[in-house]
Amino acid sequence: VRINFRFLPFPALQSKGMEKGNDSLVTEFIFMGLTDQPELQLPLLFLFLGIYVVTMVGNLGMITLIILSPHLHTPMYYFLCCLSFIDLSLSTVIIPKMLVNFVSEKNTISYPACMTQFCFFAFFAISECHLLAVMAYDRYIAICNPLRYNIMMSYQVCSWLVVGVYALALVITTIDSGCLLRVFFCKENGINHYFCDLLPLLKLACSSTYVNQLVNLSTSIFNVLCPILIIICSYVLIIASILKIPSTEGRSKAFSTCSSHIAAVGVFFGSITFMYLKPSSMSSMDQEKVSSLFYTIVVPMLNPFIYSLRNKDVKIALKKVKKKTILL
């Protein structure tokens, strides 16, 4: 009995497999957006265009005001300037593409552009999480250790804290992005979202996402719970210190310096916690889109107003800048 064997050369097998894989890999994604109703596209376009203009004017105005006003050159306003830059950048990463999608027939984004958008979004969102914790620490030092404030929060210390925030955000973004780049996207390319976020992308994967989900849970816990714990501990000590102040006016003034930060923290971390630290069965993707609107679009617009409306220093600085502008 003679048996004939037929071998397929390895290079031919490899090229055949690669050709099949390349045919099935996704090269672009399609955004489902906020709604599929055509009559709402134009109103939403004007709404988010207005929000973006207000965000740009508010945050650029805050940055300019802090730079031009010497009496605002303190650690508190230095961190606030950095927060305005982050909010401005976060909005710019998401809203312009979102506006284009409202007027486009096909809301597509290429695979490289989608990965790039996710990287920048993750970097600025993570930076904001940890910067808010740094700002809470700054308020703790200012109220609980006022005599040592200038030493403990010197220019060098503030600079290193901000550099640390950005470096930490860069490391975590690199980890999340590296894990996402390992995922294969085959047939499904419709993202049920208005930008390239991690969770909607993982739902389209045709390869295992176990590692991604584990890494995402770990980084989310670190980026959300760690800053929240720092903020809570800072404000527990701050409240305990404020209650020891004998005068009502002194307690009121101390509380007023913290109220703006508490409001910003509540809205930002409330929405981001709902998005990333909940079981996947608790909400639909539509609810998650509404939640993400707060920390990606609403909070960056509101922060300049939250920090300026009840802030006497900002109001005084604004009046001085107006006078100088009029004299010029």
Rank of each mutant, 00 (worst) to 15 (best):
L302I: 11
V211I: 07
Q41N: 10
T92I: 05
L170Y: 02
Y140N: 04
P279R: 08
T92F: 13
P279I: 04
Q287S: 12
V26T: 06
L198G: 04
F121Y: 12
V183E: 00
S24A: 14
M32E: 06
L42Q: 11
A136S: 13
P112C: 11
K324E: 13
L161D: 00
L72N: 00
Y149D: 03
L199Y: 10
L328S: 13
C129E: 00
V54M: 14
S24P: 01
R6E: 07
I239F: 15
D87C: 15
F274I: 08
C144Y: 03
L328V: 10
S284H: 14
C186Y: 10
H130R: 09
V100Q: 14
S218P: 00
T92E: 10
N150F: 13
M282G: 08
A263H: 07
Q117R: 12
C206G: 01
G178I: 05
I262R: 04
S252I: 13
K253E: 03
P9R: 13
L60F: 13
I230S: 07
L318T: 04
N192C: 15
T74P: 01
A205C: 08
S271I: 03
L72D: 00
I238C: 04
L243C: 11
C226E: 07
A169M: 05
I143H: 04
S91I: 03
L147V: 09
C226I: 14
S177H: 12
Y307N: 13
I230C: 11
L34M: 13
C114V: 01
Y77H: 10
A113S: 11
